[in-house]
Amino acid sequence: MTSPQSVYRAVAREVNRASISAPATRSKTIVKNFRTIIESGGQSNTEHFDHDLANAVTFMKSQRMYKILLERYNPLHDMSAEEKVKATARRVGLDVPLRENSDEGQ
């Protein structure tokens, strides 16, 4: 069985790795809430509690890995529709023609 300190460290480590902001600007409330949950939950039904925390750590690691793989193998996933069209055209060696003011043609 793992100690509450090691579980807390694993949760805090995953929360820090998942954060997109700089360490100085991160909100400390998430880690504090996890710490409170771990301190209070460790006293009742420790087997289920430890299992739930291990599942939470596994979920956070999996989400982080999913994001990394999505960015690696699907680089267009976070682009707008217009940016996707331009990137796809560039990929096959074409440039998207510049659009003239659409109000003039009508």
Score class of each variant (00 low, 15 high):
Ser3Asn: 04
Ser80Cys: 03
His48Phe: 15
Arg9Ala: 15
Gln5Val: 09
Glu100Trp: 03
Lys67Thr: 14
Arg17Val: 14
Arg13Pro: 00
Ala24Asn: 12
Arg13Asn: 02
Thr58Val: 12
Glu82Lys: 11
Phe34His: 09
Ala22Phe: 02
Val57Gln: 04
Phe49Trp: 01
Arg72Ile: 02
Val85Ser: 04
Phe34Gln: 08
Leu94Pro: 01
Arg9Cys: 13
Asn45Thr: 10
Ser21Lys: 06
Thr58Ile: 11
Ser44Lys: 15
Pro97Gln: 02
Leu70Ser: 07
Asn55Gly: 11
Asp50Ala: 08
Asn55Ala: 15
Val11Ser: 01
Asp95Val: 14
Ile30Phe: 07
Arg26Phe: 04
Asp78His: 11
Ala56Lys: 03
Leu76Met: 14
Val31Glu: 12
Ile38Glu: 02
Asn55Asp: 11
Arg26Asn: 08
Arg13His: 00
Ser27Lys: 09
Thr25Phe: 11
Ser62Gly: 15
Ala18Asp: 06
Tyr73Gly: 06
Ser62Val: 09
Glu100Phe: 08
Ser44Met: 11
His77Gly: 03
Thr88Phe: 10
Ala54Glu: 02
Asn55Met: 12
Ile68Cys: 03
Leu76Gly: 06
Gly42Ile: 12
Gly105Arg: 09
Leu94Lys: 03
Ser3Phe: 00
Tyr8Glu: 06
Ser102Glu: 09
Asn74Tyr: 08
Thr2Glu: 00
Glu14Pro: 02
Asp52Tyr: 02
Ala89Gln: 02
Ala22Gln: 09
Leu70Val: 09
Glu100Ser: 07
Gly93Glu: 05
Asn45Gly: 05
Ser40Gln: 13
Gln63Gly: 03
Met65Asp: 08
Asp103Met: 05
Val11Asp: 04
Thr36Met: 08
His51Gln: 14
Pro4Arg: 00
Lys67Gln: 11
Asn16Pro: 04
Asn33Gly: 08
Ser102Arg: 12
Asn74Thr: 10
Arg90Gln: 10
Ser44Thr: 15
Lys67Leu: 10
Thr25Ile: 02
Glu83His: 02
Ile30Trp: 07
Ser40His: 08
Thr36Cys: 11
Lys32Phe: 08
Ala81Cys: 05
Ala10Trp: 03
Glu47Arg: 14
